[in-house]
Design a protein around this nucleic acid. Sequence first.
DNA 1: CGTTCAGTTGACTAAGGTCAATTCCCGTGG
DNA 2: CCACGGGAATTGACCTTAGTCAACTGAACG
Lengths: 203, 203
Amino acid sequence: MNYPLTALIETIRHIVPLNEADTTLIGTLFQPWSLKKGDYFVQQGQVCQQVGFIQTGLVRYFVNQDGDEKIYSFGLENDFVCDYESFLSQQPCRRTIQAIEDSTLFIISSANLQRLFTELNYGERFGRIVIEQIFVQAMGQLVSLYTDSPEVRYQVFLDAYPTLAARITQYHIASYVGVKPQSLSRIRARWAGKDYNRISSPE
Amino acid sequence: MNYPLTALIETIRHIVPLNEADTTLIGTLFQPWSLKKGDYFVQQGQVCQQVGFIQTGLVRYFVNQDGDEKIYSFGLENDFVCDYESFLSQQPCRRTIQAIEDSTLFIISSANLQRLFTELNYGERFGRIVIEQIFVQAMGQLVSLYTDSPEVRYQVFLDAYPTLAARITQYHIASYVGVKPQSLSRIRARWAGKDYNRISSPE
DNA sequence: CGTTCAGTTGACTAAGGTCAATTCCCGTGG
DNA sequence: CCACGGGAATTGACCTTAGTCAACTGAACG
């Protein structure tokens, strides 16, 4: 096992305890993978067959609605990446996951993930906590879409991902916030007019 | 065990196979409960301590945003009802679940649900499938909020819950769709002007 | 030095929010 | 039986904001 798995192992260890045997097992079940900018982790219509762990790079999750892309999430360093709906049900994806930077990851197949769940000391617990986290995150997004204006959502995005904003285009941010790039630009213009340091004062 | 548990058992059986011992176990782990119109199944700030199964009645899930209620889901006959985020993490609810009709349910405590998972023949599988279904449903809602206009969301609601529309107020429907009652009323007025039978022709 | 693409800006349109008045429905009490 | 009251639903006037189409700016790149 000669891959730099430390980030992956530390991320898992942050969720459940791991011993020597566990870390060895992880090394045998995951394999390195890489995506170039624009490559797909999984595309709408395919069945998502593996879970990834992003060592370096950046991906976006989106749905394609008549050529109009709606980004609903990003995956960055030390994130797990998967269309869980497709992976769990083995049904075709309704979404696409695409690298927007060159990315290096470790991937684990469905079969190996099952082994991880059963053979890792806290495997089942790990699996449950991860899906739980994803569920909570999704519900948070859902509530935010109901309750927050685009302006607030943009502010929350900046607060939640302060470094990400500089790595992606306004197009991506606008799509995530739920508006067109022109509208996001106008929101920024509005802020510039009345308030020069947004980061520290979300009004 | 003399409660009319058949609906509950049949609903579970629809997900996983059940034998005699299983149905007996279910009978011992669930207990009857009732809510009057306006009663809370669980309130924002409380920890959700049980899962319910609605035998008769109707509940709504909502978040309270400065006195403005945002309904994001309904639970009706033969649905399980729970704030899974709170139940799973044992953290206080960020949402409220309230009966909007007199309701009769069966409830199961967290401890008993753990027993159900381990002692039922397909208990773990049952638990996984239920959370999976809820996750998929939540993601569907999330995508719909991104991609669909209020008008489309209203149409989808009518298609998905044809009978429910008659049981609840426009206020509830509007909140679910994500607009004010006045706006929903205007959408209906628009339809009346150009198309008299919406149900069969979603444009 | 032109091409290209991201970002901005302007003019206009469409649609929901807000506040307020009005109508409709239904149950209650005189 | 009818008048009244209250909540639900509708409608109108006006405002705010995002969508749309288009033009323009600016920086990166060859």
